[in-house]
Design a binder for these strands. Sequence first.
DNA 1: GTGAAAGCGCTAACAT
DNA 2: ATGTTAGCGCTTTCAC
Lengths: 336, 336
Amino acid sequence: MTIKDIAKLCGVSISTVSRVLNDRPDVSEENRRRIMAVIQSSNYIPNNSARDLVKTKADAIGLVVRGVSNPFYTDIIQAIESAITAAGYTMVMQQIGSSDDEVKCGAMMERDKRLQGLIFLGGRYDYTPGELAVLNVPFVCCSYTNSYGTLPEDAYSSVSIADQEEAFRAVEELYRLGHRRIAALVSRTDDRSVSQLRYQGYVRALEAHGLPLDPELVITTESFDIGPAYEAVARRLGEGASFTALFAIADHMAMGAMRALREAGLRVPEDCSVMAIDGLEVTEYIHPALTTLCQPMAELGRRSVELLLQRMQGEPHCRQTLPTVLRRGASVCSRN
Amino acid sequence: MTIKDIAKLCGVSISTVSRVLNDRPDVSEENRRRIMAVIQSSNYIPNNSARDLVKTKADAIGLVVRGVSNPFYTDIIQAIESAITAAGYTMVMQQIGSSDDEVKCGAMMERDKRLQGLIFLGGRYDYTPGELAVLNVPFVCCSYTNSYGTLPEDAYSSVSIADQEEAFRAVEELYRLGHRRIAALVSRTDDRSVSQLRYQGYVRALEAHGLPLDPELVITTESFDIGPAYEAVARRLGEGASFTALFAIADHMAMGAMRALREAGLRVPEDCSVMAIDGLEVTEYIHPALTTLCQPMAELGRRSVELLLQRMQGEPHCRQTLPTVLRRGASVCSRN
DNA sequence: GTGAAAGCGCTAACAT
DNA sequence: ATGTTAGCGCTTTCAC
């Protein structure tokens, strides 16, 4: 069943059918109705390969997810997928490890799948104009943004939270409650990722309140995963580190930390308060429920697609920063 | 940069270039080498739309995920994606709600995206040959299988665990430990899903050991989500239900149940043991760690793709059943 | 072993 | 408002 068959069935030329298919105005109402009807009843679906061929682009948007098993991405991906589908595009997703280069992957996909645009979910914060030059289609960074001045403001689109400020806020909340020995659980302090940014928020909060930055209280792990976080905290506690509160840069890592604290005989929050950023649903059900700054996951996804579609229409770059919402659980208590 | 340009650059016809591109044998070694070199250096990538157009199919495989926010799917999706990409195909994923029909969605995608095959992740257990007739490409059901005799054995491919038997095993383990009042937490008892199957395993285990099936001990919820599970268990406890063990058909639901038990003043496992099926990583870190039958998620995904690829080569249908592994946590204790 | 040419199904001038 | 026609970039006969 091709456009030709429909044309024949309707006694019109294929151009008229094509016009109807593409919602062009220059078709008589009668023909439009008739052709629509035939298309419906014959169950005809246009051949996208042919369409893409002449348009030289596919109606597809690529999604590159970096740092695969992060449960934080699940809801975002879902929101992105439905927004892309709703807009009449096809989502092509590719997942890569934290050590792979998302820009290279995106460039490959762009050419291979003939994409119209790209969304990067999780990625580096220090792209250079040179690196980005391999990308010939609009792209949007979701859940992170360029943060090290390696890119001019107007060369970049993103939807994210203000990582450093939110981390600052989290740590300040702990300070306000009387905590003075506040540990930080980060993946790295220097990887130019969300981890580093949130770590900087931690450092700035300590400074703002005249607290010393004690290396003993900075716990680093190899990844954002729960297992390594658990091990890192357990090790540091084994070394005798002592603190009354822990700020984890991600909910998942906080869960690992809570197990380590528990196994070390420390009660949360009586002996050690725990606070994090992300807002995974599951952390509301564990005991004690985690106090955390909730990211608006669905909104992050939705907005990213919206922004990308605008960029594809030729609109200028734009950086959106979304607010988090503090969800108070029982993992934090006051020392006042 | 098209095949034409390459041909010109090499001083050969486009057919020769096409032959090289498609690894055809009838090209002189010298030409092959020369053309390959030019392709490399000019960074040429064939236009897939054009290829697909003449082949009348795209090198794409569809993935329909039903019951979106189920965290159990995350690892499976990842495994599926990398296997599809590794095989040189493009994965096109679409997520649908538990109330949508995955077969219809798959049929739409198949035609719309010109897919070569489909993988269904999470779906119904009672397809009829008639329903399946809308599918014109091979498909594989991942994590579930046809279980109600609505389909002949050889009309169906799947990779899954033996839901009913595994549930039986879980409940039997509780019985063995001395539990006699064992509650079941299910989504529905009659929805022809994994929930119903695992419920049947529960029923059979009770029967096998001469325990009565007490309606008070069967707790149903509207979905597989954590929130509704929490509420359902809380409500039933509020109504005065009493049991010494709870079998949840999914880890996530077990987590909701554990919060409800806790808030009702019941200790896990001293007052009530909790056992589930799935094996989410996170349930190993909560307190108490969940005792659960772990599904081999990565393997489920990998095998599904493998099987689909074979089906696409014309090989016959095949049903694979993978074993689970019992992971003992502290959520279960003995009554003996 | 290589080239010429016919299409795959569609869109978009261009002509009427 | 509608039809005719030339490609889009590729694969695949069919000659040579």
